[in-house]
Amino acid sequence: MKFRNLILKNIFRNKSRSLLAIIGIAIGVAAVVGLGMVTDNLSKSTENALTAGAGDFSVIAATGPNNGGGPPGGMGGDQVINQTKVTEISKITGVGSAVGVLRTSVDLSNSTNTTTNSTSGPSNFRSMTSIIGIDSSSISMDDIVVTNGTVYSNNNEVIIGKTAAQEMNKTVGDNISISNNTFKITGIYETGNFMDDRGIVMSLDSLQSLTNKTGEVSLIIVKANNGTDATSLATKIQNNYPNELTTSTSLSGMDRMNNGLDVINSGSWAVSLLAMLVGGIIVIITMLKAVAERTREIGVLRAVGWTQKRIIAMIMGESIVLSFIAIFVGLVIGVGIVELLSTTNILRGIMPAFSIFLFLKGIGVALLLGILGGIYPAYRASRLSPTEALRYE
């Protein structure tokens, strides 16, 4: 009988024992593959969920107080940017979209609604209302979400922040006077930023006309293409306009998100390693039991001239063959469970993804468990004395 045929015969001779070993290895494979399908795409899914539609960073004038304003949602500086820069920046490789935003403040407590710059002194801070000018199709770039009503559709309409609406006792359908111009409120919005939620948003053209800043914007909000690093893109834009434009990114929130994802990834690896440990123990116990049950058989093989190396090769070969069978079982279990959870919307917002790397990692785990699980039993079998083994009952 050929050596490989003997290995296969030994495996299927005791089906329950072999099945136990296969299950043990399959547990490890399923854990690595299943968790990998979820966590490998978790970072991208989380980033998309948190930044869907929102800009990645803002471009501001390089001159002015503190070199301009801040990240998307900030008030910007006194300096303005020629609106043609919006088109120029949108054409830079890696830029997904760019939108110009004009910001100012209005004192709505007096009859003339005097407009002023965004850095008004603290004496009249509480009476000032932030005014944002941005194209209606791009308000999500500035984290503006209409929660009641609709966005403005012409230059005579505005949306008002939730806090401002409460303070002014305004609602959808009311009119509001700004700089002696009457606007209809079409919606209530929220940003999560206290200052912006005390403000009013209108079309860019309207605010440019009110402030006599036609063709000018306070800042440009930029969103990078998928796969483009926002920090590198910000540096590239800044280098393209030295001493003219600068960029401001809000990285603290992303850093905290990445740290959280690192914890999640570490946790998934811990669960995978635990599953591998359990699988390895099951394989070792199974193979040791197999050696104990075949003590007399191994003694006969040693008596007819089988070397220790050949005995080790036989036991290890059986363990590796079991591992290859477990690869298929583990992949089916791991992928099947994740797909089932995804279908039932339990993994809402997460896009599971199976990759070649994950497949290779599953094969590696199975072979590792098979080899590690077979080493000691194989070594123990090879050390059996033929005389003692033949006397074993």
Rank of each mutant, 00 (worst) to 15 (best):
F12E: 05
K15W: 14
G199S: 02
N212E: 02
I160S: 06
V146A: 01
V283F: 02
M316D: 04
I356H: 00
G53A: 13
N117D: 09
S43N: 11
N48D: 13
D143A: 14
N265P: 01
N243R: 06
Q166F: 05
A290H: 04
T104Q: 08
S118I: 08
R310W: 04
A164P: 03
A366K: 13
L251I: 13
T186C: 10
I144V: 08
E318H: 03
E167F: 00
L360S: 08
E393R: 09
K91P: 04
G227C: 13
G215W: 10
G70K: 02
R13H: 14
N265T: 09
L20F: 14
M128Q: 06
I11M: 15
K162I: 05
V201Y: 06
E297I: 08
D174M: 12
L301P: 09
R391L: 09
W306S: 13
T104Y: 09
R256M: 10
K309L: 13
L204G: 00
F354I: 02
T150Q: 11
S248I: 10
N265F: 05
K213S: 07
S232A: 13
N155T: 04
K170N: 02
A366M: 13
E190N: 12
L360N: 00
M141L: 05
V158H: 13
S252P: 01
L20C: 06
S90Y: 09
K213D: 02
P242D: 04
V335K: 07
I363D: 00
G349F: 14
S137Q: 09
R391D: 01
R302E: 08
T235L: 15
G373R: 14
I92R: 14
S136Y: 02
I298M: 12
L20H: 07
L8K: 11
L251H: 01
F3P: 01
R380K: 11
M75D: 01
S250G: 15
I325T: 11
A270Q: 01
T87G: 12
S272T: 11
I264L: 14
S268Q: 03
E157H: 03
F324C: 09
V99C: 05
D56V: 06
T307Y: 09
A61T: 07
S323A: 15
D143M: 11
L251W: 05
Q308Y: 12
S252L: 07
T63R: 12
N181I: 08
A26M: 01
R310P: 10
P377W: 11
T93E: 15
I298L: 14
D255G: 03
E318W: 10
A270P: 05
L8N: 00
L322R: 04
L219H: 05
L360V: 12
I60C: 04
I315R: 03
A54M: 13
V321F: 08
G100K: 12
A164V: 00
A381T: 07
Y376W: 14
T51A: 14
A31L: 08
V59P: 01
